[in-house]
Design a protein around this nucleic acid. Structure first.
Lengths: 187, 187
DNA sequence: GCTGCTGATGTCAGCAACTGACATGAGCGT
DNA sequence: ACGCTCATGTCAGTTGCTGACATCAGCAGC
């Protein structure tokens, strides 16, 4: 047992998330977030590099999981297939209920500053996938394009998954989007 | 003739560019930029929404040019081919000498905040291309994927063009990258 | 049990990005 | 000559973010 109320980081995340949803991102000050979490502004910045980062806390874990999945993908898969299978592993993290991710995405989509941060996180995922593919012997240029394509597929699939009200599987959405990408790039 | 020294915007751009290259982005204050341009900090923010935006001034023009090129592309081209031809029209803006763009890109690449801004500009280009493709009758999903792929191709080609010391053409780099994308997504 | 170290938090001062409100002043049309 | 326009200047204020230092519960070693 610690001597302070434990879970400071989690409390900050929850407080930030709630306030962003209630009043919007810019209308919420870091001081307010900290106050709701019963902490100080300074403590917020010890846990998160900046105000936006609090919404992207799980990202490293997600990327790590995808990179592991890429390493474990069957060697006979093509670069693109392996990368797509890897991003599909994110389904384990997101689970079947899109409600949480949907609320989070709504906040992000409503604020350009947060979309910027999301994009650079995606770019980090592309880089990680690209490096992983090179580790599988894929040449640099092909690795970069396959990684980029896989993430594009993932983004489209993720968006559809969030939108769907029937209980569609994220993996299914991914396979569907991959098929559409192949149709578009064929020829 | 104006009553103030004209070209305030351009002077701010040049001052910002020079200072970013000299000392780095974070080490340069808006007040310093304004001072070098013989203007006030407040005036800087009247010309540019924020400190980063000064490096992305030509973006709307670039996007506009690409959208026009897409509209003018032969109707018989596939969605991806049309989008790639359209981004190729950017070559008219960049010219043959990569020196200027190269210096600019070096500044951007050195600072994550600027990379974030660049990514959201690219995302804007994807959206514009996607809309344009839908105007050509391409279904939404295919339009989004083709636009995304075309921009991925452009980014790889642009990077290679900047790196090349021989006088390679940007259009050539684009065609080359498109071929590699097709090889990666085939199968 | 005392001691000293550790590590998360609090406190405080300060810089720099950005904004709103109002003032200025040269040119332009009438 | 008059007043309007509009890019710029001036000023005060909020907020994001940082560095430096203080605090203080627990834990290790004696």
């Amino acid at each position: 047992m610690g001597r302070w109320v434990p879970g400071a980081r989690g409390r900050l995340q929850r407080a930030a998330f709630d306030l962003f949803a209630e009043r919007g991102f810019e209308q919420t000050t870091v001081a307010e977030i900290a106050a709701r979490a019963e902490l100080t502004e300074r403590t917020f910045f010890r846990h998160f590099a900046d105000k936006r980062e609090v919404l992207f806390a799980g990202q490293e874990e997600l990327t790590a999981r995808i990179v592991v999945a890429l390493a474990e993908a069957p060697a006979e898969l093509s670069a693109l297939d392996a990368a797509v299978v890897a991003v599909g592993a994110s389904a384990e993290i997101f689970g079947d209920r899109p409600d949480g991710p949907r609320a989070r995405q709504a906040v992000i989509n409503a604020h350009p500053e947060l979309r910027e941060r999301e994009l650079i996180k995606m770019e980090g995922l592309v880089a990680a996938l690209s490096t992983g593919l090179e580790g599988r012997g894929v040449p640099g240029a092909a690795a970069a394009l396959a990684a980029s394509s896989a993430v594009a597929v993932f983004r489209m699939a993720f968006e559809r998954w969030l939108r769907s009200d029937d209980g569609r599987d994220l993996g299914t959405c991914i396979r569907e989007a991959l098929g559409e990408l192949r149709a578009v790039t064929a020829g």
